[in-house]
Design a protein around this nucleic acid. Structure first.
Lengths: 287, 287
DNA sequence: CGCGAGATTGACTCGGGTCAATAGTAGTGG
DNA sequence: CCACTACTATTGACCCGAGTCAATCTCGCG
């Protein structure tokens, strides 16, 4: 089914979420997954010994725009994304959204609710989604029997922690161009890991949401994408992104590394390269 | 166990770390803590039933500047801060440090190593420190017997995750003044939770480290502290900070909330308040 | 076919980064 | 005890990256 890419299952409206695609079996008119399928989804290589056809986890579908959980809501279950795209957000005292992540297939939701027993963030479906429910009580009870599970959980939470650390590092140190470049590269890698094309894909989120996620305004995101397009790093058409030079995007550095170049390329080099027939003056500042 | 790490133990000479202060008992010339003491330190209200005088966790001392663990080092143990102050940092491709956190009493270190089995960050002592070792293997083995422990771990990791989410929200949305203000308020609260004064304390980190943590330059941090000092929110003398108006610091908002005031106070209001005998023009822009 | 949400682009402004000079503080050793 | 050095902090001058405001364009949808 997901042959080419870009669109997993065409988003036909209202059709009971079209194809079940991956894991899961019908029962009582619903999809269920066993522990092995859950671990596969998480990319965790835990040797799940059990014949866990007994241990089944229910799926739930959410349609575009629906909230999976909201801030302050009593916590009782974790979610794993089986298909679809979401965003998680914080809401500040003025009602402004701060996007924290864009979960997709294989990601876990709700971990931030464990501590206080209330979700600390809000999760919203950006497309029709299929999520697997992991009732937390059930999960800890299972831990008693299957110790592998405990390590799976530690691994997932630690992974999420590392991801957030990288995010903090990015927000604290990178320029706008570098943030957008990294965002695109990371997205491409995640699509690749899901079996889709990493060279051509559709953004599921608005410029505003990307900006919030990267600590930028939507205008800056838009301008930066246009600039990347002009110098041939990518192609942009609304939400369709084509990656043309992944290497350049990966190595695009920040402007404020410290004291170093930043002055020398401003005037001195400009005239030296008048022989270039191309049109690459747009990002000349970042080299 | 093979220490391998940068700076192992054996540095208890000098002053045997002044006062043992809190938890711990001597044995083999070292300090050890039991499970209850560990949980108390973490502020986790887990009913630790066990008479866990058998389960003892060793302490280790680190002196100012020593590294507890480095990036890429093989992970095998978690740490809990019993006393002292540290920083955790990421190192980018150019050797620049990005400060991620300032762990102090009751905080856990090393969680980011669980996922890949290698520490993802570096932890450095900013003062002489006393840490409790939690060998991860031992910990998971214990989980088999004491289920409370599992929940303690989940709680600590979830708490850390929430903290990092708040950090991301701050870096993505707040102005320099607001970041510094929040930093001070958060520090004050943490000191209060540790039983110290929340009104007068010493920073254990440099302006540079604060700036890195907040995504600012050291100059901006310094200037902002001076500005807060001038309008009477705090007093500053090198690393000694006195909190004068905690409420004002807490409610200091960002400048770029969206579209709203920002223009109307620029010219119109200035002349209307010439009757103010005080000296408060410094931060007039933020109102 | 018009409407509204989203995206693009331009013009302008300013918060905060950069560079630089000065001053306070700590550690070391003669 | 006082230099001598190295590190840290404070301030000022300057300027650029990105935010703000606003106009226009595109596209999907009822």
């Amino acid at each position: 089914m997901q042959s080419t890419s870009t669109e997993p299952r065409n988003n036909q409206p209202s059709t009971m979420h079209s194809a079940p695609s991956e894991a899961g079996r019908q029962r009582q008119g619903r999809l269920w997954s066993n522990l092995r399928e859950v671990c596969d989804l998480l990319h965790i290589t835990a040797a799940v010994s059990v014949n866990s056809e007994e241990l089944l986890f229910q799926h739930v579908q959410f349609k575009t725009g629906q909230r999976v959980h909201t801030i302050g809501q009593a916590f009782d279950t974790l979610y794993i994304v089986n298909s679809g795209f979401l965003k998680t957000v914080l809401i500040d005292e003025f009602g402004n959204e701060q996007v924290l992540s864009f979960p997709m297939k294989g990601d876990m939701l709700g971990v931030d609710g464990i501590h206080t027993r209330h979700y600390a963030s809000e999760a919203v479906a950006l497309s029709d989604c299929d999520l697997i429910l992991l009732p937390f009580k059930k999960l800890t009870a299972l831990g008693r029997v299957h110790m592998e599970l405990e390590n799976v959980m530690y691994g997932v939470m630690s992974r999420e922690l590392v991801r957030e650390q990288a995010m903090i590092g990015m927000l604290g140190a990178l320029s706008a161009e570098a943030r957008v470049a990294r965002f695109l590269v990371t997205l491409a890698d995640r699509f690749a890991a899901m079996g889709y094309s990493s060279k051509l894909f559709n953004l599921r989120m608005t410029r505003h949401e990307i900006g919030s996620y990267l600590g930028l305004t939507l205008e800056t995101v838009s301008r930066t994408l246009s600039a990347f397009n002009e110098i041939g790093l990518i192609t942009v058409d609304q939400r369709t992104i084509g990656i043309k030079d992944a290497e350049a995007l990966k190595t695009l550095r920040r402007l404020p590394p410290s004291r170093s170049r930043a002055k020398q390329n401003s005037a001195a080099k400009q005239k030296a390269e008048a022989g270039q027939p191309g049109d690459d003056q747009v990002l000349a500042t970042t080299i």
